[in-house]
Each structure stands twice: as C-alpha cells, then as structure tokens.
C-alpha cells in the first residue's frame, strides 16, 4: 500500500483506492451498500466496473450524477 501521508487533498481524490489496496472485497461490498442506502441511489453495472468508480473523485462524481438524476 502506498504512503499517502505526503499527498494533498486534490491528489488523494485521484488515488485508486481499490487498486492501491485500501479496501478489500468484503469492505467494498459494505461500502457500496452504505452509499446506496445513505444516498437512496442504485449504481448501475456499468458504473460499478468503470474506471471512474475506482477513485474518490470519480466515485463522488458518479454519486452526484445519480443524485441529480442525470446519468452519464
């Protein structure tokens, strides 16, 4: 796992949290369930497997689009 201590907030948003090993598959299932529950949204299969989903910035953008009802 890479050292994140010296990264700025903007850089952290671009980190691939999945590929860098910050979260395992069990935690990922939990995280997705919580996000969907908290925001009352449902990620599509295409969103889940997109490269966008793999960074915090991308994930945040997907959630925002779901909330505004305008899927990409």
């Amino acid at each position: 796992m890479a050292d994140m201590g010296n990264k700025t907030d903007a850089e952290l948003l671009k980190v691939g949290y999945l590929d860098e090993g910050f979260i395992d598959s069990f935690q990922l299932v939990e995280m997705i369930a919580k996000l969907e529950n908290n925001f009352s949204i449902k990620f599509s299969a295409a969103e889940l497997i997109s490269s966008e989903f793999r960074t915090l910035a991308g994930l945040s953008a997907i959630i925002e689009r779901n909330l505004s009802g305008s899927k990409k």
């Binding site: 999945l18 590929d19 598959s25 990922l28 299932v29 369930a33 299969a45 889940l48 497997i49 989903f53 793999r54």
Partner: peptide
C-alpha cells in the same frame, strides 16, 4: 485485483463473486 476488476478473468471464486455482485447485486 478487486471485485470490480474486469481486466482479468480471475479465479473461480472471483468470477462467480463478480457475476453475483454486479449482475445480481447479491452479496
């Protein structure tokens, strides 16, 4: 590399786990 990785075929558990989670939305 993860449950959402579509760039590798993965082992049996990974393939089935991904199918279940992404297509069926089942834990």
């Amino acid at each position: 590399t993860s449950l959402l990785d579509t760039h590798h075929f993965g082992n049996f558990h990974e393939q089935l786990g991904q199918k279940l989670f992404i297509e069926e939305r089942v834990d």
